[in-house]
Design a protein around this nucleic acid. Structure first.
Lengths: 73, 73
DNA sequence: AACCATTTGTTCGTATGTATG
DNA sequence: GCATACATACGAACAAATGGT
């Protein structure tokens, strides 16, 4: 419920953070592409990237140009 | 507020659409490559692909990896 | 077979403009 | 003014399919 007022990029970030914490997204695993995430969350790529940026800043994710975004091992 | 100036990808799409409508691009014909179109329109491949995507969504074009983009017959 | 050039497909990186609250 | 969000555009790297040498 507290989640309801979070802006989309925060909600997406929390969602991914939880997936990583519970190992639904395992270390080394490649995330869905930004475009897929955009569709999944019903938002735009910019917003998805904003969410990913939070997790990258936390060191939870690593992105590689032309390859994808990965869960840090 | 009228969208007098269309964004490049829209302008390119309209241009190709007109060429198809007037059969300057005939059914089954292969378009110039994305790299050629990019140079012709003075833009980038990404923008060209965005224009092509519109026409593919409309069923006017069909693309085949390694071969090219074709006017639907 | 092995190699290579061409072409489309996919993906992340970055920047600007516009709009809203 | 600021944070958020969307639209557009350009840049870059790599993958995959094709066709020819």
């Amino acid at each position: 419920m507290p989640d309801r007022d979070l802006p989309p990029y925060r909600r997406i970030a929390d969602d991914l953070r939880a997936a990583i914490a519970t190992a639904k997204l395992a270390p080394g695993e490649k995330l869905k592409s930004e475009n897929e995430l955009k569709d999944l969350y019903g938002t735009t790529r910019v917003t998805v990237r904003k969410a990913l940026a939070l997790l990258k800043a936390d060191g939870l994710l690593i992105s590689e140009q032309g390859r994808g975004v990965f869960v840090r091992q």
